[in-house]
Nucleic acid binder design. Structure first.
Lengths: 157, 157
DNA sequence: TTGATCGGAGATCATTATAGTCTCCGACCC
DNA sequence: GGGTCGGAGACTATAATGATCTCCGATCAA
């Protein structure tokens, strides 16, 4: 459950790869083309192309046309959050249908849905988690997130 | 993104309702039948029936056959976690395909997937969040989870 | 003991989301 | 000006989801 899509997976791999090339020691500043990433990770070329186009549209990467073209990060790695990447591909975070709808009749046309509020709390926690982690954090195997149980921090139960 | 299914939604509503009836002031100890819940929340009767059957199979609720039959919680509300409910319906938590597979060739047949480890960290955080919250917490609008950014707790970024 | 009321369980279907493909276009650089 | 790149749209196949239908067995009360 709560699985992210393959496209989102590909987006993360691609961005990690672009960042690694761009800020690495071997060929810093080099742009990366779609084919290179597709072959490196065995991703269907044309599907990856769509993913990269989407990321470019959301200003996470910049495209460079023509021969020797390819993609480069539009910002530095620590300014790109996991939340931004995932939302570019899959749309805004929402664990329930009624997460981000305008005011109106939802939740089965009843006002007696008692689970909406707690679920939104869960969603907020996840959002904060994803917003706190950046592409930089995914590079080079550095320790990433200290896992801390909300239980130990004053949760009502 | 990261949406939970309608079935899982229904499961949460149903369990909340059963708990409210069972431990409420009006008719404590009463079993609740499928039809009552379906009508209360406008859930398709037969779909809800399947959801409740699944929950019973996972020992979260107990079924009572025959006239005056219905469902009752198998444990107390504070012993049923959101994670248990969701996993009963949607299967184990796994934000990536390679989350809980045996050792073997995954992640595009390559060992150069650099995003697996960080994603598993994210997954662990979500798992802890869902495990720390119980059905009890969803009752009666009590404050539920203190949202705390992992960033403020020593995250590398 | 019989029939109405329950849940149990399986097959089935429609709709949607996902994953992946194909094709054509325009920009760029040598 | 031709080959190499990304941009963009339509398109298809498959899987997941949501929902329905049907039949069965257990139970209880008249």
């Amino acid at each position: 459950m709560l699985k992210i899509s393959k496209k989102a997976d590909y987006a993360l791999m691609a961005l990690q790869h672009i960042a690694a090339v761009q800020f690495g020691d071997v060929t810093p500043g080099r742009v990366v083309n779609t084919k290179e990433i597709a072959e490196e990770y065995n991703i269907p070329l044309e599907l990856l192309a769509k993913v990269l186009q989407t990321l470019a549209k959301h200003a996470l990467i910049e495209s460079h046309n023509g021969p020797k073209g390819g993609y480069a990060l539009a910002r530095r790695a620590h300014q790109i959050t996991i939340a931004q990447i995932l939302e570019s591909i899959e749309g805004p975070l929402g664990i329930t249908d009624c997460s981000h709808e305008k005011d109106g009749e939802f939740c089965m046309q009843r006002g007696n849905c008692h689970i909406r509020t707690p679920l939104l709390k869960v969603q907020d926690s996840i959002a904060q988690l994803l917003n706190s982690m950046t592409l930089q954090d995914m590079m080079g195997g550095t320790p990433l997130i200290t896992i801390q149980s909300p239980t130990a921090q004053g949760v009502e139960r």
